[in-house]
Amino acid sequence: VMMSGMAKDTTAPLWKKGGSLSSLSGHELRRRGAQGRPKGSKSTASYLDEPGQPDDASRLTVQMGNTYQLGPPKHFPAVTVNHILKDVLTNCLREENYEPELCGQRAKTISEIIKARVKDVMAPRYKLIVVVHIGQLDGQSILIGSRCLWDPKSDTFSSYVFRNSSLFALANVYGVYLE
């Protein structure tokens, strides 16, 4: 594409900013004066701040490399977790009486204590799920069930039931391996 000398001079600033010349006709280029635009018109130009820079969305993505690890190097320590569950539930609830207003907060506190202690002995790349149920022990019956979709070769759980004269507590810790 050949441009006249005057057209090159007036369009050079647009090229440097990354603007577009497609909206300029030959007649408009000739009518441009020293100010660089036709009389009585408004001009808009769209351009990138820095044409060579990637956009924000591509800078925020994190690329993770494959480890090609097909199984856990160390399995979930179920026996150790059972000891932790027994110790925490016994120490926290040994002398407690059932109070319905406080049981929800107690269950949250106990699950946080269990999670913190299990994380110290946990195998790498396992995700933990801790569930604690506390209920009144008054001659009634309760059935608590759980279902999980997992790989039986690497995923497992530990469970412990505690009872005193007025309450029961059931704590479950699920260890799910993250590939």
Rank of each mutant, 00 (worst) to 15 (best):
M2F: 04
S4P: 02
K8V: 13
D9L: 12
A12Y: 02
L14W: 08
W15V: 13
G19H: 03
L21R: 10
S22V: 14
L24R: 01
R30Q: 14
R30H: 08
R32P: 01
P38V: 10
K39D: 07
K39S: 07
K39I: 13
S41M: 12
Y47T: 03
L48G: 02
D49W: 08
P51I: 05
P51Y: 02
P51A: 03
G52D: 12
Q53A: 08
P54L: 08
D55W: 01
T61Y: 01
Q63R: 12
M64V: 11
G65L: 08
L70W: 05
P77V: 10
A78V: 15
T80K: 12
H83Q: 14
I84A: 06
K86W: 00
K86P: 03
N91Y: 00
C92Y: 05
E96C: 14
N97Q: 15
P100T: 05
P100S: 10
Q105I: 13
Q105L: 13
R106I: 06
A107C: 12
A107D: 07
I110F: 09
I113H: 05
I114S: 06
R117H: 09
K119R: 10
A123K: 03
V132I: 08
L143W: 01
I144C: 02
I144L: 13
R147W: 02
R147T: 04
L149T: 14
D151S: 07
D155Q: 03
T156G: 04
S159L: 14
S159V: 10
Y160I: 05
V161P: 00
V161L: 15
V161Y: 00
R163W: 07
S166K: 15
A171H: 04
V173R: 11
Y174I: 11
V176I: 15
E179P: 15
